[in-house]
Amino acid sequence: MALNATEGGDHIGSYRTYFFIWAALMLLLVATIVVAKVEVSKYSVLLNLFIATVKAGLVLFFFMHLKYENWFLKGVLFMVLVMLASVIGLTFSDVWYR
């Protein structure tokens, strides 16, 4: 049952990958400002939250090495996010219908 010792933490991210991820993050930062300023549609807030999620995903998967972790951490992270979303959702079942 003991987990394989060569997983996750032994991964050494290459400087190049990190640099590309950083460049992508910067581009997304510019994109999110443009979306906000141009006001393409009433969905720009949602679009910006989507861009934020992509940025967060890049940080999580590459900077934080989540890509190289086992199912356990990925699964629990997913569970935590679902949980938080459900708590907010259940609260809104009150706020919206009050």
């Binding site: 910006n48 939250l49 861009i51 934020a52 940080v59 999580l60 900077f63 934080m64």
Partner: peptide
């Protein structure tokens, strides 16, 4: 590093919520 990246992620969400919803 994990902690620092996490703090970064929080800011990634705070930024649009406070500066970009104009």
């Amino acid at each position: 590093g994990l902690y620092w990246h996490f703090v970064d992620i929080v800011w990634i969400y705070l930024f649009p919520l406070f500066y970009l919803i104009t």
